[in-house]
């Protein structure tokens, strides 16, 4: 496709995405390995055993988890301090603004499309009056918005509960620490639910064929104009104005 390219992501955005994805998956893997108690560990004893072998024991594993978590938090804090107005807040506004009619319709129709397949859908749904088209989308489509909401909120809960857990053996002096105990449970819940969405995100972004141009854009920042018009019409129209 020899369509002209348009800018989709800044270098800062690309760096933050891959830095975050790397830290996030590392923290997920190491955090899961910290759960050695068989009542809590979902994968079985081999998993914490393997990670402890790799990191030279449970204390090494905990140290690595905390070190990367602090780096992750520090870089995010720096990003928000430096770029709050320029990138961070506009990003949050765009993912948290759902247009009830357009975005909900998109979600429902897209689900039909993905589960039934395009051909099947053409046969089944089109006779009912739907022409098979999806509502026009903004910079992020409704699926990306919902996924991003879960990833942002899930990461926020992880950051707060994680800081409480780290603070437990640094500064918390009370002998009875139910909120540290609940932080463990909440930390796992947030990680688990967010991971479910991350799974879908990785599939859609890295594996699904339709989204290939978006994947390349997470490296070189650009998408073909035709892709932008096709997938993010409202954003494309705004740019062309």
């Amino acid at each position: 496709m020899s369509s002209p390219m348009i800018q989709r992501h800044t270098n800062t955005g690309i760096f933050m995405h891959w830095f975050n994805a790397g830290c996030w998956l590392f923290l997920l893997a190491t955090g899961l390995g910290l759960l050695q108690n068989p009542d809590l560990q979902p994968l079985g004893a081999w998993y914490p055993g393997l990670l402890r072998a790799v990191f030279g024991g449970g204390d090494g594993l905990l140290g690595a988890h905390i070190a990367v978590a602090l780096l992750w938090l520090a870089v995010w804090a720096g990003y928000y301090l430096r770029f709050a107005g320029r990138y961070a807040v506009p990003f949050l506004v765009s993912i948290f603004t759902l247009d009830p009619r357009r975005d909900l319709q998109w979600i429902v129709k897209k689900n039909f499309q993905m589960t039934l397949g395009y051909k099947m859908m053409a046969r089944l749904v089109r006779p009912l009056g739907w022409d098979g088209r999806l509502p026009e989308q903004e910079y992020y489509n409704a699926g990306q918005k919902l996924a991003a909401q879960v990833m942002v909120l899930g990461s926020l809960v992880l950051a707060v509960s994680g800081l409480i857990l780290a603070a437990s053996s640094w500064i918390i002096d009370t002998p009875n620490v139910p909120w540290v105990q609940w932080s463990i449970t909440i930390h796992y819940l947030a990680a688990g639910l967010t991971f479910a969405i991350v799974l879908v995100h990785i599939y859609m972004a890295a594996i699904a064929k339709e989204e290939r141009p978006a994947l390349w854009s997470m490296f070189n920042g650009q998408v073909p104009a035709a892709y932008a018009e096709h997938h993010h019409k409202l954003w494309y129209d705004k740019l062309s104005k």
């Binding site: 009542d39 809590l40 979902p42 139910p178 105990q181 609940w182 463990i184 449970t185 796992y188 819940l189 688990g192 639910l193 991971f195 479910a196 799974l199």
Partner: peptide, 17 residues
């Protein structure tokens, strides 16, 4: 918190994931 983790949160996360 641990009982809640073991009896509810763990199976729920298993299911969703």
């Amino acid at each position: 918190a641990l009982e809640f983790f073991k009896n509810l949160v763990k199976p729920a996360v298993n299911l969703v994931v």
